[in-house]
Amino acid sequence: MAKTKILFVTHEMSPFLEIIKISEITRQLPQAMQEKGFEIRILMPRFGNINERRNRLHEVIRLSGMNIVVDNNDNPLIIKVASLPAARMQVYFLDNEEYFQRKKIFRDEKGEFFADNNERSLFFCKGALETVKKLGWSPDVVHCHGWFTAMIPAYLKTAYKDDPAFKDAKVMYSLYANEEFGSLSPKYAEMAGQEDMDVAEAANYGDGSYVDMYKGALSFTDVVVYGDEDIHPELKSYIDEKGIRTFIPKGDDDYEGFADLFDEFATADAETESV
């Protein structure tokens, strides 16, 4: 039987970038799943404060060279990779000089949320999916972590729904407390709808506030994972109202629970195909 394939997409991961709890979860969970026999891939942005020499990043020429369109502008995408020898894992980094080569991550030196964080997020989300396609790899599950990945569920369920690389993929989204966030403005949805989906579908992301952004993402999500106990109450109410399936791990190291969930998705696909 083929291994279940899991794509982890995150904006932070230990030891490369550590902001909140996400970094540790995205470091340990993929390794635990790999040790249980799952096939995994991990994608994250190559922010400017990630030291290439210390972390031994190098460009993957065969994957680089794509252009990602955001707000009707072509933006070159460079793919780099680093290995975690102790875990036998590789991490793919998406790089772009204009969007990611800054000393700061989400806020400038004055503490202001970057005005183009909406563009940066869209570039990363679309670039991640295009990178997976170029890898020639089809995930059974796409597991998103952090607000920077917020448009991936919508892309998967609209623009990429008939793409052979993703047509059967299920979407999981882990929610966390205390995320570093400002506002993406209504232009987040507007720009996403320019090239890749119907404007009405992108409108689920509302005014780009934290709550609206996640309401948009969760409306395209198959299972919501509670990565923390104190999730925003409006999001909890929205999840209940829409009847979105939830998974509440018994702890951060509830790897058996995650493994059962991932396997369930792959099994469901296999059963559907055999009917």
Rank of each mutant, 00 (worst) to 15 (best):
E190Y: 12
K157P: 09
A169G: 08
V199K: 15
M197I: 07
E179P: 01
K157N: 13
L135M: 15
T149L: 06
V132N: 03
T131M: 09
Y205L: 07
D198R: 13
P186M: 06
G208K: 08
G206H: 02
V141Q: 02
A189L: 06
E190A: 14
K133G: 08
E190N: 12
K133M: 06
D207V: 10
K134V: 04
Y210H: 13
K170I: 03
W137L: 10
G182I: 02
A189V: 05
A159H: 15
A189N: 08
G208A: 14
S209H: 06
P139M: 02
W137A: 13
F181W: 10
S183C: 09
C144I: 07
P139H: 00
L175A: 01
K170Y: 05
S209I: 06
Q194W: 02
T149F: 05
A202T: 03
Y176I: 05
S138L: 02
A169P: 05
K161I: 08
S138G: 06
A169M: 02
K133A: 09
D196I: 08
F166P: 02
P164Y: 01
L184E: 03
L135G: 06
L175E: 00
M213A: 11
K170F: 04
N178W: 05
P153G: 07
K133T: 06
N178E: 15
G146M: 05
M191A: 09
V142P: 01
S185E: 13
N204S: 13
M213V: 12
S174I: 04
M191F: 14
M191Q: 15
Y210W: 11
P186R: 00
D196A: 14
P164I: 01
D168G: 03
